[in-house]
């Protein structure tokens, strides 16, 4: 296997200071929405989406599970870049 190890994510570090405020706003919105969801809005698409925080939990845990699954699947599927070339 001769693929490069790809671009490290470490570059993110240098950018994070710029994002700090943004991130706080982001988290603030998350919490705000949760509060609104819990206190005012009722959902009635299906029988179970009125469970409190259903969408938030589904979004978060769904994503986590999905990414972890994807990493597991990659072990099966990963081949070198020129795998199909002769």
């Amino acid at each position: 296997m001769n693929y490069n190890s790809g671009k490290p994510i470490s570059g993110l570090r240098s950018q994070i200071p710029k994002f700090v405020n943004f991130q706080n706003i982001f988290y603030f919105f998350c919490v705000l929405l949760l509060v609104i969801d819990f206190s005012f809005i009722t959902h009635h698409e299906t029988s179970f989406d009125s469970i409190p925080f259903f969408y938030a939990a589904f979004g978060f845990f769904g994503s986590v599970i999905f990414v972890i699954l994807a990493v597991k699947i990659r072990k099966l599927l990963l081949r070198a870049e020129d795998y199909f070339d002769d």
């Binding site: 693929y3 994510i9 969408y55 978060f60 769904g62 990414v67 870049e81």
Partner: peptide, 30 residues
């Protein structure tokens, strides 16, 4: 609201996973 919740929390999962290094790296691969 439901769509925003879904998307925002999903995005927050992205941020956390990226920071933890769990998020799959971009590899030159097939």
């Amino acid at each position: 609201l439901s769509q925003s919740l879904l998307l925002l929390f999903s995005a927050s999962a992205f941020i956390i996973l990226l920071r933890k290094g769990i998020y799959p790296k971009q590899l030159n691969s097939t």
